[in-house]
């Protein structure tokens, strides 16, 4: 397949996946997963997904990215989000330059 078609196939498949999750609530019985272990598992999903997304990027790409990641975690305690993003980008760029 030509790259152009691959990109549009990806966009349409991603759109289908998203709409599916948002319409799927129509199929969930009203009293499903309102407590217990199953509800706890679903409630944990955002943290589990987001952590799985960034942990390899923070911890397996060399010391510069690991140190920049640690700085971001510390900064997130005190600073608003745009400042944390700016600091993270600057730290990553600077430390990568030092690491060569």
């Amino acid at each position: 397949m030509i790259p152009f078609a691959d990109t549009w196939a990806a966009i349409l498949a991603m759109a289908g996946a998203t709409v599916l999750t948002r319409l799927a609530g129509l199929a969930v019985p009203r009293d499903f997963a309102r407590g217990g272990r199953l509800a706890a598992a679903f409630a944990a999903m955002p943290v589990a997904v987001l952590t799985a997304l960034i942990a390899p990027a923070m911890l397996t790409q060399g010391w510069a990215d690991a140190l920049a990641g640690a700085l971001v975690v510390l900064a997130s305690w005190k600073l608003p989000l745009p400042a944390v993003v700016a600091l993270g980008a600057a730290a990553a760029a600077g430390l990568r330059l030092l690491a060569g």
Binding site: P46, L50, T51, L53, I54, A57, M58, D65, A68, G69, V72, V73, A75, S76, L81, V84, V85, L87, G88, A89, A91, A92, A93
Partner: peptide, 10 residues
């Protein structure tokens, strides 16, 4: 690296 910062805050 902005991804990392955004996701850490989320």
């Amino acid at each position: 690296f902005a991804f990392v910062a955004i996701f850490v805050c989320l």
